[in-house]
């Protein structure tokens, strides 16, 4: 009660530092949030929820540790909660593409072909395949490849063993490669 009559609210300098650092990571967090949700509106909601929670519990962040990982952990927890609320059936990963699938599908490209292919590839099929991955696989791919977390950091965020991160990453990326291969193969055929 006495606080309310204080002349000016004194903000902890550490809080100001936290605020600026957290806001500066908005692009990074957005990239991840956008791919963990079905549409931009859901991503915006997730961002707002996540930042609200972050500002409220900023004292739980240990300065000097990876703030991006800390924020992404909040995003992850909220995304999981939302998925539970929607009671989405866990989707199947769907396939077990061979490691050489893309190579085979493209009929043995040369190195120059690969470079051209990457230049020419449209993002659509990759984004679509990414969106169709079930959440446990999508999260690992998104956290490591878009959130720039290490295996260990992703494991800490998701509270799963590093080995599980690696195997999910491997299988998730394989699905993306297959999507690319099907697309590229269709184009060149």
């Amino acid at each position: 009660m006495a606080d309310e009559t204080a002349e000016a609210p004194v903000t902890d300098p550490a809080r100001l530092v936290f605020d600026e650092q957290a806001l500066a990571l908005a692009d990074d967090v957005w990239r991840v949030a956008r791919r963990l949700t079905r549409d931009p509106q859901a991503a915006e909601d997730l961002m707002q929820e996540a930042y609200t929670r972050a500002f409220r519990s900023w004292k739980q962040y240990t300065p000097g540790t990876n703030l991006r990982a800390w924020l992404l952990r909040i995003v992850h927890n909220l995304a999981i909660d939302n998925a539970r609320k929607q009671q989405r059936q866990p989707e199947q990963l769907g396939l077990e593409a061979d490691d050489y699938y893309l190579y085979d599908r493209l009929g043995g490209p040369t190195v120059a072909d690969v470079d051209r292919l990457v230049e020419r590839l449209s993002p659509g099929p990759v984004l679509e395949a990414l969106g169709q991955l079930s959440l446990p696989f999508r999260e690992v791919v998104v956290l490591v490849d878009l959130g720039d977390l290490s295996y260990q950091e992703a494991a800490d965020v998701l509270e799963i063993p590093v080995g599980t991160v690696m195997s999910r990453l491997h299988r998730g990326r394989r699905v993306l490669k297959k999507a690319l291969a099907d697309h590229a193969g269709g184009e060149t055929a």
């Binding site: 190195v111 690969v114 993002p123 990759v126 490669k177």
Partner: peptide, 16 residues
């Protein structure tokens, strides 16, 4: 080439 594709799929995704 396989390694190139592995890198390629990631760069396409990041760009996208």
């Amino acid at each position: 080439k396989c390694y190139g594709l592995e890198v390629g799929v990631r760069s396409v995704m990041r760009k996208a």
